[in-house]
């Protein structure tokens, strides 16, 4: 039948097996003879991190969907988006954007073999993360005193759960970066190990990217829809 000899067709394209030492070591390029090379040539941990990030898309996607699905279901006399302080939040948003910049600078520094750059920028990134968290704490407490809290209405519930989840991600990121920073102070990180920094960077940038979406969808859009526009 049509594909009766598929083995043949396919087998021929691949390195012949079984003669001499044509095993894993000539798969891939210049393997340093040590660790397991991977089928795709991509690092396992990096694939893990991207897969995790892909999965996180659905996590934040559901939170944002919830927010948008219940948005507009108001309980009378409860606070709403008019409480948002857009200029304040946009500063927060830029703090996080700038921390992304410092994160790539840290990685670039490491890859260029510059430990000092690495340490400075790692610290700056973690510090900016802390500034963001402080800002979020201030924002939350302000809202709390203005009677806008997660048990008040749908907007409150979904707003605090979504931004709280994001804040928890930032917190994990800050702990991670501080650990890396301490590690780099104590032992230094060899440029070959730049993956350590790259992986944490991927996580950190993803958290930043989520904030970009939150800033637009959670803050700007509902705020723009209150009667009378911006003010």
């Amino acid at each position: 039948m049509a594909r009766a000899i598929a083995h043949d067709e396919q087998g021929r394209l691949l390195p012949q097996a079984g003669h001499g030492d044509s095993d894993i070591h000539d798969h891939g390029h210049d393997d340093h003879g040590g660790e397991h090379p991977t089928s795709t040539g991509l690092n396992n941990v990096k694939v893990l991190m991207w897969t995790f990030i892909a999965s996180e898309c659905l996590l934040f996607g559901s939170l944002i969907s919830t927010y948008l699905a219940v948005e507009g279901r108001t309980i009378p006399n409860t606070p709403g988006p008019e409480l948002f302080d857009i200029p304040y939040t946009s500063v927060s948003a830029f703090v996080l954007l700038f921390s992304s910049l410092s994160m790539v600078l840290a990685l670039a520094g490491l890859q260029a073999g510059d430990q000092r750059q690495l340490r400075i920028w790692l610290f700056v990134t973690a510090a900016l993360g802390l500034v963001f968290l402080g800002g979020q704490y201030y924002e939350f407490s302000t809202f709390y005193f203005e009677e806008f809290w997660l048990d008040k209405n749908f907007l409150g519930s979904s707003f605090f759960l979504l931004t709280g989840f994001h804040g928890a991600h930032v917190t994990v990121g800050v702990i991670w970066l501080l650990a890396l920073w301490l590690y780099s102070l104590r032992y230094g990180i060899a440029p070959e190990k730049s993956l350590l920094v790259e992986i944490s960077g991927l996580y950190w940038h993803f958290v930043d990217v989520v904030w970009i979406v939150i800033f637009a969808v959670v803050y700007l859009i509902p705020y723009s829809r209150i009667e009378g526009g911006g003010h």
């Binding site: 891939g28 390029h29 210049d30 393997d31 340093h32 040590g34 660790e35 397991h36 090379p37 991977t38 040539g41 991509l42 690092n43 396992n44 941990v45 990096k46 070959e192 190990k193 730049s194 993956l195 350590l196």
Partner: peptide, 18 residues
Amino acid sequence: MSRDYPGADAEARHGSTA
């Protein structure tokens, strides 16, 4: 660090191709 990072070398290799 840990063996969960088996491909430090492989990564360096891949990184260099990139």
